[in-house]
């Protein structure tokens, strides 16, 4: 599992790094705006667990069905002997959480780091796997719109599953209006590439979904 995880992680990171290029470091090389050096430091942070969970519920989950991304932290195998069962519900607090007791309050754990990126991956790939699994076993988890799009993706590698129209529908379903047109074009080119076509049906759906949900425009606010 972790081997596969590492492969996906490195792939995503490499694609992003290679696609965008790394800006050369150094104080003297900063571009100027209004005669002031521009700092390209990341600002913003995760939307947080609660908001992300709500967004996913609003976009893909059947209304009235209880859903928690944190549920994917549970190890499905060996459930009865899961030594993490007392810990896993609290892991979500590592994904951006508000805490307040009056004087000390704020939004915490909202900056990406190695642990929370792995946790996001586990949660989001869990959801993506459930989506891919609907090709074999229909699930009541997803809303009608999601089911309709998944039905088209399940025809992979047929043309309809990777058509501009289907990919736009999937992007719009998951990303809604959070990202720019340019992000969509890059993602679509990635999915329609020869390299991507080597994926099996389930791999293709999983990778399509994870690469949208792992996008900073989705995860960050």
């Amino acid at each position: 599992m972790f081997c596969c995880l590492r492969l996906v992680v490195v792939t995503i990171a490499t694609v992003l790094v290679a696609g965008c290029g790394i800006k050369p470091k150094g104080k003297t090389d900063k571009p100027l705006v209004n005669n002031k050096p521009v700092n390209y430091e990341l600002i913003g942070g995760f939307r947080g667990y609660l908001v992300t969970n709500q967004v996913i519920k609003d976009r893909v989950i059947q209304e009235g069905i209880p859903f928690e991304l944190a549920g994917y932290f549970e190890l499905k195998e060996n459930q009865e002997e899961n030594i993490f069962s007392d810990i896993t519900p609290n892991l979500r607090s590592l994904l951006g959480i508000n805490e307040g007791n009056g004087v000390n309050s704020g939004y915490k754990n909202n900056q990406p780091n190695s642990i929370n990126m792995l946790l996001w991956y586990i949660a989001l790939s869990g959801l993506a796997t459930d989506m891919a699994d609907t090709c074999d076993d229909h699930s009541n988890l997803f809303n009608q719109k999601t089911d309709d799009i998944l039905a088209k993706l399940c025809t992979w590698p047929e043309a309809e599953s990777k058509s501009d129209k289907t990919l736009q529908e999937l992007w719009q379903l998951l990303m809604d209006y959070d990202a720019t047109n340019e992000e969509f074009l890059v993602w679509r080119a990635y999915v329609q590439s020869d390299e991507f076509s080597k994926n099996t049906k389930k791999e293709a759906i999983l990778n399509m979904v994870v690469s949208i949900l792992y996008n900073p425009y989705f995860l960050l606010k």
């Binding site: 992003l16 290029g21 790394i22 990406p112 642990i115 720019t180 047109n181 074009l185 900073p216 425009y217």
Partner: peptide, 26 residues
């Protein structure tokens, strides 16, 4: 640790510069 660095770099770059650069090419 290395993966963490890659993640953070990818996130940071994608957020701060990727969109802007590509916008000019589209």
């Amino acid at each position: 640790k290395a993966l963490a660095c890659l993640f953070i770099i990818s996130l940071a770059i994608s957020l701060s510069s990727c969109g802007k650069k590509k916008r000019n090419h589209n």
